Simulated scan of single mutants.
Amino acid sequence: METQHNSTEQALHQYKIGMGQFEEKMPQLVSTFNAFTQECFKEGTLSQKQKQLIALGIGLYSQDEYCIIYHTKGCLDQGCSEEEILEACGVTAAFGGGASLSQAVTLVQECIQELKGTTH
């Protein structure tokens, strides 16, 4: 990958380690945040698959590499095809322009290729 991470899995691992360290220092905040996000991403009128696609788009728009990686994995875990993921990236690029598209054509595609072997 051409990011600060050596691999998608390493980035996910670094996020988990960082969250664990933060949780040791701020347990109530992390517990509340986790409960909130679990509620946001549970199956509802929108499926978990749709919610992951939305989250990926927001991650792309906000240029948050960890969220891009995390939600690309979430999309794959929820059964999204590569075409669905890339179409969501295209919609995001309609709002976020070149910055969003540059993450889609690099980081998202790299994540899909790396994670396909480990998630499916």
Rank of each mutant, 00 (worst) to 15 (best):
E24C: 05
E24Q: 15
K25G: 04
K25F: 08
P27G: 13
Q28I: 03
L29T: 08
L29V: 10
V30F: 12
V30I: 13
S31P: 01
S31D: 13
F33C: 10
F33H: 15
F33S: 15
N34M: 12
A35C: 01
A35L: 04
F36S: 09
F36V: 07
T37Y: 12
T37F: 12
Q38H: 12
Q38V: 02
E39G: 10
E39C: 02
E39I: 02
C40K: 10
F41R: 08
K42E: 10
K42P: 02
K42I: 04
G44C: 05
G44P: 03
L46P: 03
S47L: 02
Q48W: 01
Q48K: 13
Q50V: 04
Q50S: 14
K51E: 10
K51S: 12
L53M: 11
G57N: 07
I58V: 07
I58Y: 08
G59C: 06
G59T: 00
L60F: 00
L60C: 06
Y61K: 05
Y61Q: 11
Y61C: 11
S62A: 12
Q63V: 02
Q63S: 13
D64Y: 07
C67T: 02
I68T: 02
I69S: 13
Y70A: 09
Y70G: 01
Y70M: 05
H71S: 06
H71I: 00
H71L: 02
